[in-house]
């Protein structure tokens, strides 16, 4: 099985749109993993049928046992996050503010506070309207991402691919260059970078390249909206050439790109043959990268 991860650094470069389109071209040859869990959007284009859903637990949450609580207020005095309120004579945990540090639980003289696993979201195995399998996740309101959910989604997608002998795993990577991105790097065969012709796009491309070189991973690059700022686009091309990262395509700022998305479709479903053939070219390249 070949694992290809699609990364961008900053948001808004079109990473998810490209991942979705490549997944459609790959069809039943690929499983798509949506590891962009902060902005998990792939399912909006795939409108998948959910086959399995699982709870995702992360971090802890304090829970007061009112049968033994003596209303002494030690917990509230010691809470550094102002997460315990006194409401109608009872001490109540504010679940949004509680950081799960467990200080209240350690200091409660009656041992009335227990730390419970925090429900942070859900993860799913689904089948898209094209028949492509996908693994994706959803974080609850107010929950933060960490490398943990990224690892989970990817590992589950891998298991599924192995079990069903599916030759490709396409991973929509998390944004940025931090811990979740490193989690997404584990075990990849090829990194496809989607960048855009802006200063911040180039800045993030450079940081991603450092990681790619460190992990000795193979990579290629697509410059989206290259005509927004052609001098920067040129600088990006030169940079990629200097780092043995082939620039597969330069995509112009295109109304149809956007219109297709507005209609909840992937860009290979658009009428724009030019755009479609560029994506097909990218997929042909990825299909033949060495594992």
């Amino acid at each position: 099985m070949k694992e290809i991860v699609i990364m961008s650094g900053k948001g808004g470069t079109g990473k998810t749109s490209f991942t979705a389109a490549l997944g459609v071209l790959a069809g039943k040859q690929a499983i798509v993993a949506d590891c962009d869990v902060d902005a998990a959007n792939l399912h909006l284009l795939y409108q998948p049928e959910i086959l399995e859903d699982h709870n995702f637990l992360s971090g802890k949450l304090a829970v007061i046992d009112y049968d033994t609580c003596i209303d002494c207020g030690v917990c509230r005095d010691k809470c550094a996050f102002d997460a315990i309120d006194l409401t109608d004579g009872k001490y109540v945990i504010n679940e949004i503010s509680c950081e799960g540090c467990a200080v209240c639980s350690y200091l409660c003289p009656e041992h009335s506070i227990e730390m419970k696993d925090n429900h942070a979201g859900k993860w799913f195995i689904s089948k898209s309207r094209f028949g492509t399998w996908m693994v994706h996740a959803h974080l609850d309101i107010g929950q933060d991402n960490s490398g943990k959910l990224v690892s989970k989604v990817k590992d589950e997608a891998k298991k599924l691919a192995k079990k069903n002998e599916i030759p490709f795993l396409l991973v929509d990577g998390p944004p940025g260059v931090g811990c979740p991105v490193i989690s997404a790097f584990a075990g990849v065969d090829h990194v496809l970078i989607i960048t855009e012709a802006t200063q911040s796009g180039f800045h993030d491309l450079k940081r991603l390249t450092e990681l790619i070189e460190f992990f000795k991973a193979q990579a290629s690059c697509v410059i989206n909206k290259y005509d927004l700022n052609e001098p920067i686009s040129g600088t990006i091309e030169e940079f990629c050439n200097g780092h043995s990262i082939p620039v597969l395509e330069k995509i112009p700022f295109d109304e149809t790109f956007y219109e297709t998305l507005q209609n909840g479709k992937t860009i290979v479903e658009s009428e724009n043959k030019n755009l479609k053939s560029k994506i097909e070219h990218i997929w042909q390249f990825l299909k033949n990268v060495e594992g």
Partner: peptide, 9 residues
């Protein structure tokens, strides 16, 4: 087994 390139995870 393969080397897992993640350390903490």
């Amino acid at each position: 087994e393969q080397i897992d390139i993640r350390f903490g995870r």
